[in-house]
Simulated assay, not measured.
Amino acid sequence: MTHAALPHLLAAAEDDLRQVADIVNISSQAGRTATKDFGVYNMTKFGVNGFTESLRQEVTKKNVRIGVLEPGAVDTELISHNTEEIRNHLNATNLDAIPNPLQPEDIADSVVFMVTRHRRATIAELWAMPTSQA
């Protein structure tokens, strides 16, 4: 997706009106801290973080801002897409113990914050955490 979008974003960043373009990748707190039984998920999120930072370094001087949003617990269908055995294991790890997870609109608000900064500022990394999550 990034490969297809990047030429258009580089051209947009040269536009006299805004003079900047943005890519925001969505990762997870699991891309910062590995946890038992989540190795593959951790690997994919660490990969998103590494790719994002590498790309940021490659295109930042061309006024394309690259950032990664790393949310904590979000109220999504993620757990429901697993088998019953995995859901039972996840419940045993207390993933559902966070009483007020973030909502999708919290993630959208974070992305809006990242892309509406003045063109001189890049939010390269942003955590969005439920207040109740340790």
Rank of each mutant, 00 (worst) to 15 (best):
R18A: 10
L102G: 04
M43A: 10
A13E: 00
H81I: 08
A34H: 02
L90D: 02
E58P: 05
V68C: 11
N91F: 10
E58Q: 14
Y41G: 01
Q29G: 08
V48F: 04
A13F: 03
K36M: 13
L55R: 06
V68K: 08
L90H: 13
Q57S: 10
D109N: 15
Q103W: 06
N42H: 08
N25K: 08
E77V: 10
N82S: 04
N100E: 15
R18Q: 07
R32P: 03
Q57N: 11
L102Y: 03
F38D: 11
I86N: 14
G39S: 11
A108H: 08
V24I: 11
V40N: 14
I98L: 00
P71L: 00
I23M: 03
N82F: 05
F46D: 00
A21V: 01
E14S: 07
I98V: 03
D16W: 12
A11C: 13
D37S: 14
L55N: 03
G72K: 04
D16C: 08
F51S: 05
D109F: 15
L102E: 02
A11G: 10
P104E: 02
K45R: 02
E58W: 13
T44N: 06
V68E: 00
I26G: 15
G50K: 03
K36H: 13
S27K: 01
E14I: 15
N42K: 06
L10C: 06
N25T: 09
P104W: 05
D96Q: 05
V59N: 04
F38H: 09
N25R: 15
V48A: 03
L17F: 09
I86H: 12
T35R: 14
M43V: 06
D109A: 15
E85P: 05
R18L: 07
P99S: 15
N94P: 13
V111R: 08
N82W: 07
S27Q: 03
P101W: 01
G50V: 10
S27C: 05
V68T: 10
V111S: 09
G31S: 01
E58K: 12
K61L: 06
A21T: 03
L55D: 00
E53R: 09
V111A: 13
A13R: 06
A11W: 11
R32K: 14
S80W: 12
E70Q: 05
T44W: 03
